[in-house]
Design a protein around this nucleic acid. Structure first.
Length: 428
RNA sequence: GCCGCUGUAGCUUAGUUGGUAGAGCACUCGGCUGUUAACCGAGAGGUCACCGGUUCGAGCCCGGUCAGCGGCGCCA
């Protein structure tokens, strides 16, 4: 049985069994105490001399941290036990006595990254991986409710994506291929068939960034929807973020406690989010002491300062056209601004979403490319999408890891990624 | 890529004006005990990141190299 199922009054005085790994072990004369963990929880096991066979007792005495075992015994309520219940062993089987486990109470973030393959077993990482699952699960649940189709874009691409300087190049049968840095263009292709589409797939960026919210490989949740405008897209994202936050609060109470999250800060995530034009946000930044020019881009420091004392996310919409890539649709009433938006998470976490309306008119797209010195030939199929019954549409890209970093109240993106990849870390 | 900081035992670290390297945890052995990342005693464990220089003498001062961390730019 699983440990979670033992941790209630229904098994008191009856025989239970558990198998897992020794989390803590203390030897105490004729008693051996160990805390055993499995994927569902932890429970104290007491092994008493004379109750188990002499051989079993000797083995129990030798049990080290991470030793794999199976026990059978009587369950009782015990205030002194870590989770309130304990198993008084009558049988114990050891699968493997673990070698000296390198993780002790003194550990640095850096060391934990070096031995991440072992740190995954910790209560912290286990809790985070469970919360990750909730986030992904609730994204899929939400999108299903909204009639979106999940699709699978390619990860190998032929070079045509925004920017260009931050692509990872990989050899491809004598040609050059790249790892995708965004699936947006492919989603736009899917959209003409399925109308509402999304994907949750990795994106890769070779940026030599060294900040607490950058990694070279991240989980990218992107969506694209026909007939939807910028403000409507924001409505959807607002509902979606609330849906995810609520799922986390109801599904992962224990896990949020393990990572010491103040859940009140998640409970305040409700409608309506703040929704300000770009210029208004520049003004807010200035009120908070930032020196910003009229067309300043918001860097990490600015976002942190602006969102520090917010209690829920903020939309920043209609950025200056100059600051944004060519595919953003300029406002027909005000071409100096595009119909886009970012979502900034509160408490200083900053940008988690970038999205907006895409240019859907072929000629307009080509002229925007030319004005940014891009060659439309390089984007041949993307332009081609606008040749056959183009329609207004919008989309967004959300950094799943960033979202979870914020919701879990953690200080670094690499804490929510099982095996984070950065400029300087490829192992384990 | 730029700027800053750091590198001492498996881990976390102390190390004074330059004078032969100290601790806690983990480990081994012994003791005690319904223990709570127990306690008591003992033991083992070091190329002070690497290379060079100054000096009678360098963990410490100087130069270089490497590695890591933090910040910036960029972005999700």
């Amino acid at each position: 049985m699983h440990i979670r199922d033992i941790l209630n009054d229904s098994h008191i005085d009856s025989t239970v069994n558990a198998r897992g790994w020794v989390y803590r072990a203390r030897e105490s004369g004729r008693l051996v105490f160990m805390v055993v963990r499995d994927s569902t929880g932890i429970i104290q096991v007491v092994v008493e001399k004379g109750v188990v066979s002499p051989d079993e007792f000797e083995l129990a005495k030798r049990a080290t941290i991470e030793t794999s075992i199976e026990v059978e015994g009587k369950c009782s309520k015990e205030q002194k036990a870590i989770t309130g219940y304990e198993i008084h062993a009558t049988k114990i089987r050891v699968y493997q006595i673990a070698e000296n486990f390198p993780i002790t109470k003194d550990k640095s973030d850096e060391f934990l990254l070096d031995i991440r393959h072992l740190w995954l077993r910790s209560r912290e990482m286990t809790a985070i991986m469970k919360m990750r699952e909730t986030v992904l699960d609730s994204i899929r649940g939400f999108m299903k409710e909204r009639d979106y189709y999940e699709v699978q874009p390619p990860m190998f691409v032929g070079g045509m994506v925004e920017g260009g300087s931050t692509l990872f190049e990989v050899p491809y049968f004598g040609e050059k291929a790249y790892l995708t840095q965004s699936s947006q263009f492919y989603l736009e292709a899917f959209m003409f068939s399925l109308e509402n589409v999304y994907t949750i797939s990795p994106s890769f960026r070779a940026e030599k960034s060294r900040t607490r919210r950058h990694v070279t490989e991240f989980t990218h949740y992107e969506a694209e929807a026909a007939w939807v405008n910028n403000q409507q897209m924001m409505d959807i994202e607002e509902d979606m973020i609330i849906y995810i936050a609520q799922s986390l609060l109801t599904t992962n109470k224990e896990e949020l406690e393990v990572v010491k999250r103040d859940v009140n800060k998640v409970k305040t995530v409700e409608k309506p989010f703040y929704r300000y034009r770009y210029e208004k946000v520049i003004e807010i930044g200035r009120q908070k002491g930032l020196q910003l020019s009229d067309a300043a881009d918001l860097g990490e420091k600015e976002e942190r300062t602006i969102t520090q004392d917010f209690d829920k996310p903020m939309f920043v919409y209609n950025f200056p056209t100059l600051l944004k890539p060519f595919y953003h649709r300029p406002d027909p009433e005000d071409p100096a601004h595009v119909l886009n938006h970012d979502v900034l998470a509160p408490e200083g976490y900053g940008e988690v979403i970038g999205g907006g309306e895409r240019i859907w008119n072929k000629d307009e797209l080509i002229s925007r490319m030319k004005s940014e010195n891009l060659n439309p030939e390089d984007y041949q199929w993307y332009v081609d999408l606008r040749s056959y019954g183009s329609v207004p549409h919008s989309g967004f890209g959300l950094g799943v890891d960033r979202l979870l970093t914020w919701l879990a109240g953690l200080d670094h993106i690499n804490k929510v990624i099982p095996f984070p990849r950065t400029m300087r870390r490829l192992k384990p």
